[in-house]
Every structure is written in C-alpha cells, then in structure tokens.
C-alpha cells in the first residue's frame, strides 16, 4: 500500500471524523440547555423580541446561502460559490453584531445578575464563539476558493464548512426557543 492514500479513502474518514466531532460538540450545547432548564425552569430572561427574531432570521437565511455555495461548488461554478459564501459570511457577522454588539449591550442585566444573566450570557456566548469560528472557517474557504483551490470533485473543506455552519445554525434554533420563547419573562 502506498504511503499516500487516495482522496476518496480520505474523504470517507474525514466525513466520519467531522460528524463524530459534531456529535461530541452537541453534548456541550445539550449540557447548557439542561443547565438553563434547571436554573430558569418555566421562566426566561426579558429580552428584545424583535432583535431576537431578526438575528434568528439572519442565521436561518445564511444556512440557505451556505447550501447554495456548496451545491455551486459541487457543480464547478466558482463565481456563484464565492458569492454565496461571501453572503453567508456577511450574515454570520451581522448575527454576531446583533447578539454580542447589540443584545448584550441593551440587556437590562449583566452576566453577574442572577441566574438569568448567567444562563443568557453563557448560552449566547458559547454559541457566538462557534459562530465566530464558523465565520473564520468561511473566510478561509472563501479566500482559498478565490485563489482557485477547489474543484467540483475535490472540495472537502467547503463541505466541512457547510456541515459545521448548519450545525451551528441548528443549535441556535434550540437556543432561540430556550431563551426567547419558552416560559414567562422574568420582570
């Protein structure tokens, strides 16, 4: 057997490895959600509903563009791939600004203010860190794509980035419900 293995063999392993990582990472978020249920029960922090809905829509829509980017790359359409990746990245940055830049500033409690502060800042913080790494990943993929690195046959990095981004998005679907919709607000 040659020391250098084929791309296809590696792709199988890479996919399995990434999914295992995502299952593993999901446990952190499940743990955070459990902490939220234990500490806040059927109450929730008082937050700006309009802003929450807006950032959630941004992130949901970004997953659509992420999917477009991956499909375009699989079809070998580089310009469309770059365009869609850029839009995904921009929406990710807007989400980050919305949560960390606005919601964290206008919230009427800080991280040290009781359980609602602890739960809100921990959940959004852990998630925002994942969005940030996702945006960095998107930038790397976009930058390498711009320099002609991926092809219709070989674009594992794009696929990995897309799976990760969708994962971060799905996590927020649960966190949005947990933080903005579930229970009665703490006044």
């Amino acid at each position: 057997m040659s020391a250098v293995e084929s791309y296809a063999t590696k792709l199988v392993r890479n996919r399995m490895g990434l999914w295992l990582f995502i299952i593993s990472d999901a446990f952190v978020f499940v743990g955070l959600f459990v902490a939220r249920m234990v500490l806040l029960g059927d109450t929730r922090p008082e937050l700006d509903q309009g802003l929450g809905l807006a950032v959630t829509i941004m992130l949901l829509v970004s997953s659509f563009f992420m999917n477009r980017a991956e499909v375009e790359m699989a079809h070998g359409n580089r310009p469309a791939f770059l365009r869609n990746t850029f839009i995904t990245m921009a929406l990710g940055v807007i989400f980050l600004l919305g949560v960390v830049g606005v919601e964290w500033q206008i919230a009427h409690f800080g991280p040290a203010d009781g359980q609602q502060g602890a739960v809100f800042y921990a959940m959004t913080g852990f998630h925002a860190f994942h969005v940030l790494t996702g945006v960095i990943f998107l930038f790397i993929v976009w930058n390498n794509g711009r320099r002609g690195h991926y092809s219709a046959e070989k674009h594992w990095a794009v696929e990995a980035c897309a799976i990760y981004w969708h994962f971060v998005d799905v996590v927020w679907m649960f966190f949005y419900v947990g933080l903005y919709l579930l229970g009665t607000p703490i006044v």
């Binding site: 295992l20 593993s24 990472d25 902490a35 800042y121």
Partner: peptide, 29 residues
C-alpha cells in the same frame, strides 16, 4: 468523545462563575 464534553462544560462554568460572577452553582445567590 461524548461524555468528556460535559466535564469540560462544568469546569468552564465554574471558571466563569469565579471570574465573572455568573451564578450557576452558588446556592447563596
């Protein structure tokens, strides 16, 4: 690869509670 994440999380929450005063575990608060 599954369970280890939760000791990681619990330790990070203790660190956050110590550093930023976030109230997860202190029964006084």
């Amino acid at each position: 690869f599954t369970a280890t994440q939760l000791i990681g999380l619990s330790f990070q929450l203790v660190m956050l509670e110590r550093l930023l005063g976030m109230t997860f575990f202190d029964s006084l608060k």
